[in-house]
Design a protein around this nucleic acid. Structure first.
Lengths: 335, 335
DNA sequence: ATAACTGCACAAATGGTTTTGCAAAAGCAG
DNA sequence: CTGCTTTTGCAAAACCATTTGTGCAGTTAT
């Protein structure tokens, strides 16, 4: 058992309240320097650590932020996670991670969330069901910063300029003479995410260059395996009917696609060019680095944390911060 | 603000204690069915959720297990993490993740750990400093199951048969006629980890086949970047002085090595064979799947969790469980 | 002598759990 | 039916480990 504030108080010859005042640096309590010394010394000697449960209970805050993201199999989210962890630690917060298996995976009821209360949260804001479940468990008045998609209403969010990213990708492919570009996406048009800006950019570019849009769906998956399956379907087509370029919704899919194309005997980029999205490090460790639209998960998370810090410090009233971060074309060897 | 047990009790017309008994299914308290109904209904109506801090404080347990692992950039650890999360959730536990940036990265003092108390922990047992720091923060009497390395003393642990894995890798390479096999490892001999069984297996095989051992060190890193650098060094050698095979300490390194060799114009496996270790999914998404020694992070974690469950259920006295899991050679296209 | 200040103990509050105890109801022998 | 024991059902209180505001004795300043 660990040592309690009462034992420590006894050893230092003061009351528990005094210990608390000293150790929390409560200057309003005006504890004599000599007493402070005694308390601190005793705390050191006994290896006192305040019980975090009791402390949070009394203070009505946990010094913890929640991080709700969707599947660490995608290194993009690992980057966000590690950044959040780092920033939070430096600011004196802990992180409670709640990671859904996939972007569309549900937590299957609140029992699948950790359930620990947090002071605020950062969440990858796609699966609205997950968000609702999460907020239901938390005091719903905690500040939340959403990631990865523009949101309506007075919420704080940070996202990327996905439309511009899509435009960059399409421009690039078109500039390389591709005229039968297909989009590989987990999302069908008209579904819940019909506002997907990458789709819009794709459609836009098709229209401008007179191409017939061709969307290859991965059944809501965003994995390498899904990409692989898409590539197999493409490889099975007669050479004349194949797209000459694939704009993939993210790098995981693109990596699977790339790999599947090569295995199907299709040359990349000679026969089919491949462009991903996100700029995860994995894409740089193919024999040809993946052409991709780079986004910085670190920047994303940093901005989100800055906003959250602001709210946690009490600024609940200033207008919502809504940030759109730039994207950047990284030309690799697959296009 | 959320509703407290007192408010709920008032609404149901009972005392707070009774509410607690009902909601926790305390049969010893013999609450009349009708009263139970009333309480449950009121709880439902008011959306009551017990405050987890208060609950943990009173019960002296957190229903949370700690998971101390070393760097989710390596998908091997993601697999462990997700497994732990899943098993814990099903058993009614939450997971508090504490992830060091890398296997040798230090947390830099306890402020870098989340600091939330847990009922028990599973930890990847390499960095002894991290472990000490961690245990110092926790009630040191909590049960801990170590992962990934045999440990002395009466501790529970689960590991793989790394020596056998190393032997499999070396046999395989030797069977394919390789006679200038180098080991790529983050650990020098004689350092803190001089017991590293993969080294032992390597040395063993060298001795039996009369090869001169050749250990290429990555400066304690286990990343793709480190592997890439090793490959660059190899590519810079005159063809005659190059190893004809590389046995890499893990898949991350192997992927970097593979990639670097290709970019250096070296053919894999014709000029140099590459074998990894772990069997992470990333290795299967190179144009040639990586030959590797497959280990199941899921099995590892499952066993660890079983043991931890046992201890958490009160079995603290039975002899330590120490489990060594098998490894398996997966032949890909890089050897 | 009175007012202001100093330094700390004290106690209430946080939101639960769990043990104890007691009144009322039920069971049972006479 | 009475008087005793047992059982039932729940309130009450102690406890968990801390924070924080109040109050008060003792000291110093005016």
């Amino acid at each position: 058992m660990s040592v309690s504030i009462r034992e420590l108080a006894e050893k230092a010859g003061v009351s528990p309240g005094t210990v608390s005042h000293v150790l929390n640096g409560n200057t309003a309590a005006r504890i004599a320097p000599a007493t402070q010394d005694r308390v601190r010394r005793a705390a050191e000697e006994m290896g006192y650590r305040p019980n975090r449960m009791a402390r949070s209970l009394g203070r009505r805050r946990t010094d913890t932020i929640g991080l709700l993201i969707s599947g660490l199999k995608n290194p993009f989210f690992v980057e966000i996670m590690e950044t959040a962890e780092r920033l939070a630690m430096n600011a004196g917060y802990s992180v409670q991670l709640d990671s859904a298996p996939s972007i569309n995976g549900t937590f299957g009821g609140h029992s699948k969330l950790s359930g620990w209360p947090v002071d605020g949260a950062i969440m990858w804001g796609i699966g609205s069901e997950n968000i609702a479940t999460y907020l239901e468990q938390q005091d719903s008045s905690i500040p939340v910063v959403y990631l990865g998609a523009a949101r309506s209403g007075a919420t704080d969010w940070v996202s990327f300029d996905y439309f511009e990213g899509g435009r960059l990708a399409m421009e690039h492919l078109i500039g390389r003479g591709r005229r039968r570009i297909a989009l590989v996406s987990p999302y069908a048009f008209g579904e819940d995410r019909h506002e997907e800006p990458r789709h819009a950019a794709y459609m836009d570019a098709c229209r401008r260059t007179g191409q017939t849009p061709n969307v290859l769906l991965t059944d809501a998956e965003e994995t390498r395996q899904a990409g692989l399956r898409i590539a197999e379907r493409i490889a099975a087509l007669p050479a004349g009917e194949r797209p000459d370029a694939l704009f993939c919704h993210n790098d995981m899919i693109a990596i699977g696609v790339y790999c599947g194309l090569l295995r199907g005997g299709i040359r990349v980029p000679e026969d089919v060019a491949v462009v991903g999205f996100d700029g995860v490090v994995d894409g740089q460790f193919l024999e040809r680095p993946l052409t991709t639209i780079r986004t910085s998960g670190e920047d994303l998370c940093r901005h989100a944390f800055d906003i959250l810090s602001l709210r946690l410090r009490g600024d609940r009233e200033t207008p919502p911060r809504q940030i759109v971060l730039p994207t950047e074309l990284t030309i690799g060897g697959t296009s």
